[in-house]
Design a protein around this nucleic acid. Structure first.
Length: 705
DNA sequence: TTAGGGTTAG
């Protein structure tokens, strides 16, 4: 074959990789293997279609390496994200090449910069930046410009990225996109949207699908469905609606905005789906209380022979965790092991989380101990997992181990430990943590402040909570809601209402479902019936927020507490959503308080149909009978509970002595100082009676268990 | 002869 003919075959091979080996031997036969031009073509074809190793061998064996050959080889490594190899080869190039046709050019520089960005080697990138500044020609190249922007954004230096951007009088769409992406990936989504509008409205640069992906991701980050939908419309008008990454980012937007129907429709309409599409849809279900659908979709995906990746597995595990589905969780664990995903720190962390949420702390800890690599998230999951399983001391111990270890807690971990302590009501720890938060600078974060307010309120130190609240320069809706809930917990309904009023008056914030929940529960705890009804009305009509099951539960509780049992029943009858057991439970509790056996029986009938295995509700009904001295009925419920083999989780109290939490159950004498404790209790009781305390005998009922 | 920016997760 002539070299001209070979050349045309070679071009073809570059496009499809066919008969590459055959071509290679022809080139060898014709003695053209050492020709730098042929070597370049072969190298890029091998790297793209066959093996990077062979490509490297060809590179190594070529005596005269032109800049084209260097660039082709470097690019092959970049494509495979082998950043370290890329950078090493680049350094090799810089230190060995002598002639002009071998020196790095404006094609080489972006590749080298990309490797630095991939390795988060900001200093190395800055050095290259310094070198190219001396060469004006490269400096004004937009390929170099966007690579520099990427380098600085990956290193979190958006100021430097902006400085590079501003050096270009007419940045192209890629440079604009790099800036938008940079802001989005650094969590400054507002700035990303601002940049995008400047690009489109003022500079009239037409965005492409890549730009829109970043814009939609920014909308997802801000949970800004309105703008996201506009961008969706725009992308359809531009004809980008079959761009896979773009549709995937839209799926993610709808997932984050809890717009499950939109996501389902979009997913259904997709002509082509990749593993990211499936993962996004599974995550959408898992994160929007549709665990069954998430697991069904995961199984469908596996059946259709789509290969799940580690992220798919993480989302499926999340679904198992929220559904408390241990069986499915173990099955997916086996699948993860088979695929070698268990070595992935994110997957093993998701597994620890799943076992913890399925109330299997032993399995979780066992797995955690075997993890070869642990990062701050793994520790955070372990810590909050212990707290979820009522193992307070272990949870605090993990936090201490973390501090002594090389892993420094981040703001999210701090919120987790704060929540763990608030569930336990341990004030001493709260004070310590607050000190640490101030010294570490985390206390400036809004969501940390919200958790701190919650912690202080639940530890009985409302004053400290108020102090944190008043000291916060920036307050979001969560902060206000925590403060309102804090007042509510302490029975200060009036103060809760005042705080709610203040929020509406002095801020532009819109109360959400949780805010109303906090206000309503404050009203309920203080017996402010009329105010509660007004607030409920305000939520539905003025703010157009659809009440959920929790809101109805609290309203029933509120009406029930003051004896308005008929009104409570009426409210349940009018509920447009399915009545969950706890709503009936609230009414059943009210029936006990107000001795209404007749209604209690009706309520219990409904309740037992919905939740036949909840011991607490049977006991509640038996108490209603006991007050009315219907001992036959009490006895038959007792038999029923025994027959069904139901057990009620006993309540317990916990207190903190010298940073250690002690828990106490009714009648339990396991504590080493139990003798003395009970002696003191008897003394206190005597003293209380002397002061005029009369116990409410109505509630001193028979132990039906 | 060779290019750049993007989507899912614990």
């Amino acid at each position: 074959m002539k070299s001209k003919e070979l050349l045309s075959h070679l071009f073809e091979a570059c496009n499809n990789g066919r008969s590459l080996a055959q071509l290679h031997s022809q080139i060898l036969k014709n003695g053209l293997a050492h020709d730098s031009f042929f070597a370049t073509k072969l190298t890029s074809s091998y790297a793209k279609y066959a093996s990077l190793e062979t490509a490297r061998i060809i590179f190594d064996e070529t005596p005269h390496r032109t800049v084209y050959l260097w660039n082709a080889t470097l690019r092959s490594y970049v494509r495979e994200k082998q950043w370290e190899e890329t950078l090493n080869l680049f350094l090799h190039m810089v230190s060995t090449t002598v002639t002009t046709d071998q020196k790095p050019d404006n094609f080489t520089i972006p590749i080298a910069l990309k490797a630095c960005a991939g390795l988060s080697a900001l200093a190395a990138g800055q050095m290259i930046h310094g070198l190219i500044k001396k060469n004006g020609k490269i400096d004004s190249d937009m390929f170099v410009g966007s690579a520099l922007i990427e380098l600085y954004s990956k290193g979190g230096q958006m100021g430097d990225a902006l400085r590079v951007f501003e050096e270009f009088p007419q940045p192209d769409v890629v440079m604009w996109t790099s800036m938008v992406t940079g802001y989005q990936q650094n969590g400054i989504a507002e700035e990303a949207l601002l940049f995008f509008s400047q690009m489109v409205m003022i500079k009239r640069v037409t965005p492409d699908p890549v730009t829109l992906v970043s814009v939609i991701s920014a909308c997802a980050q801000l949970v800004n469905l309105k703008t996201g939908r506009c961008v969706h419309g725009f992308s359809i008008r531009m004809g980008f609606d079959s761009d896979l990454p773009l549709v995937n980012s839209l799926l993610n937007l709808y997932a984050k905005a809890s717009s499950v129907n939109n996501a389902v429709n979009l997913f259904g309409e997709m002509a082509k789906k990749d593993v990211i599409s499936w993962s996004s849809m599974i995550a959408c279900y898992a994160q929007n209380e549709k665990a069954v659908e998430a697991l069904d979709l995961f199984n469908e995906m596996v059946q259709k022979r789509f290969e799940p990746n580690s992220i798919t597995v993480i989302s499926a595990l999340q679904a198992c965790a929220v559904a408390c589905n241990l069986q499915e969780g173990r099955r997916i664990h086996e699948l993860a092991v088979r695929k070698g995903f268990e070595l992935d720190v994110a997957v093993s962390t998701a597994l620890v989380d799943m076992y913890m949420k399925c109330l299997c702390p032993v399995d979780a800890v066992d797995l955690f101990k075997r993890m070869p690599k642990k990062d701050v998230v793994s520790w955070a999951v372990l810590l909050s997992g212990y707290a979820q399983n009522g193992m307070a001391n272990e949870s605090i111990a993990v936090f201490r181990t973390m501090l002594c270890n090389e892993t420094q807690p981040d703001a999210v971990t701090m919120v987790k430990i704060l929540t763990a302590c608030s569930d336990l009501g341990i004030l001493q720890q709260a004070l310590c943590l607050h000190g640490y938060l101030v010294s570490s600078g985390f206390s400036n974060k809004v969501f940390v402040g919200a958790a701190l307010i919650d912690l202080y309120s639940k530890c009985g130190s409302l004053d400290n909570g108020i102090r944190v609240f008043e000291g916060m320069a920036e307050k979001d809706v969560v902060v206000w809601s925590s403060m309102i809930a804090g007042y509510g917990i302490h029975g200060l309904g009036r103060e809760a209402l005042q705080t709610f009023d203040r929020m509406l008056r002095i801020s532009v914030l819109r109360p959400n479902q949780v805010t109303f929940l906090s206000v309503l529960s404050s009203c309920s705890h203080t017996g402010l019936v009329e105010e509660g009804i007004k607030i409920f009305d305000m939520m539905v009509h003025e703010y157009q927020i659809k009440p959920n099951s929790d809101h109805y539960g609290i309203m029933v509780d509120l009406l029930g507490r003051t004896g308005e049992l008929d009104k409570a029943m009426e409210l349940i009858d009018q509920m447009p959503i399915p009545v969950e057991p706890h709503v009936w439970g609230a009414l059943l509790g009210a029936c006990r308080t107000h001795h209404n056996v007749k209604m209690g029986e009706i309520v219990a009938k409904n309740l037992f149909q919905l939740d036949p295995n909840h011991a607490g509700y049977y006991i509640l009904l038996s108490h209603i009978y006991a007050v009315d001295e219907k001992w036959d009925n009490v006895a038959s419920i007792r038999t029923l509970i025994k027959e069904k083999g139901l057990k009620k989780m006993p309540g317990y109290s916990a207190l903190e002595v010298r940073s250690k939490v002690h828990t106490f159950l009714v009648g339990h004498r396991l504590h080493p100082e139990s003798e003395q404790i009970y002696r003191l209790l008897t003394k206190l009781e005597v003293k209380m009676r002397e002061e005029g305390y009369v116990p409410d005998v109505d509630f001193l009922l028979h132990d039906v268990e």
